[in-house]
Amino acid sequence: MRGLDSILYESIVYLTPTLLCVLGGIFAYKANVLNIALEGMMLAGAFVSVLVAHSHENKLFLAYLAAFAVCIFLGLVFSVLGVTLKGNVIIIGLAINMLVPAVAGFVMKLMSLASIPVKWFSTNSIMISIPVIRDIPILGPLFSGHPPITYISYLLILVMYLLMYKTKFGVHVRVVGENEDAAINLGLNTKKYKILAVLIGAGCCGLAGTDLALERLSLYTNNMTAGRGFIAIAAIYCGRGDPLKCTLYAILFSITNAVAEYFSLLVSASLLLKVVPYVVMVVVLSAASALNRRNSRTRGAFSEN
């Protein structure tokens, strides 16, 4: 039983940043702006939150805010280059993914640090323990003892679902992605919707990074995101941008990861088990793709359906 609880708890630890990236990324996906910079944006959030916390003792709020602001800034850079100037969004995404660790590495070199710790702050102090629930098996590790952003991410599942399907904004974002001509003709400002979609993603990545580095570890090391941004993209692809389906895929990947981590403590070839989540992801992505195209009769490798 304790094993299961620990796996569940670790799943949530892994899930939070991934889920946030997914929930933020679906809007850009639906608006037909492929944002592969989720990874870099999340890393930026992680870096800035820890950096600010490291240098401003007892001003936790400032760290949250700075991380969010920097990610929004990156989102703006992405939007200006990709949407306003019509640059190649894949290349912009790659550039941001490379630029963030480069800048972080540069700054850490200047500080003569290999990783940035936050010494004054203990992560335990912000964990929210919910009475009654914390003692219930299974529910306990899922809903109690997590830092604030985890609860925000739970809430965002519902918020994003409503935003996507029940509001003007959501409808318009989907129209922009599906038939841009139609949107232009009816006077929708397509660029505005694309930019907002990217910014939602960027903001969520800021939260994700803060959770990953500051809230969970109070430590920053370069490349600590370890591909979570891409796993989020895979979840978005598998769920085709539907908030609920994408969330399910994110949960699946997180549980796989937690299970692999758990067993890697027991087995000697522990490092090798770390490959498992990545492999599972490729398999699930392939299965989802094969399933989507099971009825396809077209021959081209690039044909849409």
């Binding site: 029940k166 509001t167 003007k168 409808v171 129209v175 599906e178 038939n179 139609a182 006077g187 929708l188």
Partner: peptide, 28 residues
């Protein structure tokens, strides 16, 4: 827009908002 319904297509850009008291809510 193929994935939307007939009425959603007609109302595109001029959606009717649900009222929350005196104000328009963001919901359709």
């Amino acid at each position: 827009v193929p994935s939307l319904t007939v009425y959603e297509n007609i109302m595109l850009g001029i959606e009717i908002s649900k009222k929350a008291g005196k104000f328009n809510s963001p919901f359709i």
